[in-house]
Design a protein around this nucleic acid. Structure first.
Lengths: 209, 209
DNA sequence: TAGATTGTTAATCGATTAACAATC
DNA sequence: TAGATTGTTAATCGATTAACAATC
């Protein structure tokens, strides 16, 4: 019986932080880094970092540390960033426009290939070098441009409808910014980014000071 | 010896979801809701919801359920949303502009009272009814307008400097969108909103399909 | 009363921390 | 070799799930 290794969500959510810190360290000219130093930069214990990394393989050298360039490449591959996923943003309001301009996505290897809106005044405009398409053409354009990830930035009431279209068009994953629980088939991956959670939890903590 | 009850971070992060769902249920005209129904709407088990709520008090009626309006008010108070915190956004680029326009914050009871940027072309412009101030005046304006929460939306390299100024000006909490670990005194509350984590973890999952 | 549903305790599950052998 | 640091196992801690008495 083959052992099924399940990686915890917490571990996966830390990998992007490791990736970014490794990139910064590389830019600083650092060749080798210890879990101690990585931990110091991230506010994470060295034990935690070693455990996280060890669940994917042996990337370090005992008594030495981790080779920055090599570990960065490995973590990038684990995250699948080398797949250069094609992404599309649906809903080019303030948030959608901000997301389509977000430099960090490009620097992580994601390609913005399509934008959609239903407002005629927005359709046809260019943002981040990509022309805004009519949301009516979503399915066709998504297929033509081989979009892997759809980013939902429409108002709450339209989010489920957009998600359904994205699923029908065959995207592999959805990143949802609308404050609503979206229903998708079990096979579809969806990440909910609920901005009001962070602000509310901050409110909770400062209330108790 | 007084028992010190610590509420888990996971519980606190679910409270805003309860709050929103209760508000929506109220708008639908629902007066009483069970943990079963709440759970169905949120994709959370009823047991989890009852446990979360019970850690703050007895809000329900056995055999009946929860009164929507009452529970919503209670959860809002727990989160401190009734404090009507004053918020300010620093860095009015695409993301900062989107955040200052985000309707959900207003509807949660937060007041946008100040915007800051260092670009002379942006200073003086009005966004969401608030004039953009010179970041040089940050400390003075923050104090004058009694800003409780500072939202950092500047590029990574400037984020620590802005955070230091916010701390000096006496804000109670910081909501940070810059992709960097910011150092603040232990007494300061900070929530890091790292947008690339969500997208990267989506990449991880679709890579393994 | 009978049925429904909460609040709470106990059991389980999962994640983090501690410790240390392996080894560069 | 001696010192440093990883990878891994064991111990602890914390969060979720299950079960059920209390009670509306």
């Amino acid at each position: 019986m083959k052992e099924q290794i399940v990686i915890s969500k917490a571990t996966i959510d830390r990998l992007p932080l490791y990736f970014r810190t490794l990139r910064l360290a590389g830019e600083e000219g650092i060749d080798i880094i210890s879990s101690e130093e990585l931990g110091k930069r991230l506010g994470i214990t060295p034990e935690q970092i070693r455990k996280d990394l060890a669940s994917f393989g042996q990337f370090g050298k005992k008594g030495v540390g981790y080779y920055v360039a090599e570990l960065k490449r490995n973590v990038g591959e684990i995250l699948g960033l080398d797949n250069n996923w094609n992404i599309a943003v649906i809903g080019i309001g303030h948030l959608g426009a901000a997301l389509s301009n977000y430099q960090n996505f490009t620097s992580l290897g994601f390609n913005l290939v399509a934008l959609f809106d239903k407002n005629p005044e927005v359709i046809g405009k260019v943002s981040s070098g990509v022309k805004v398409e009519d949301i009516e053409d979503l399915e066709r354009v998504i297929k033509e441009r081989n979009v892997h990830i759809g980013i939902i930035a429409v108002p709450r009431t339209f989010a489920q409808g957009v998600a359904d279209k994205l699923v029908a068009a065959g995207v592999k994953g959805i990143w949802n910014f609308a404050p609503i629980k979206i229903k998708v088939p079990d096979s579809m991956h969806i990440v909910n980014e609920d901005l009001s959670v962070g602000l509310s939890s901050l409110s909770y903590h400062i209330t108790r000071k």
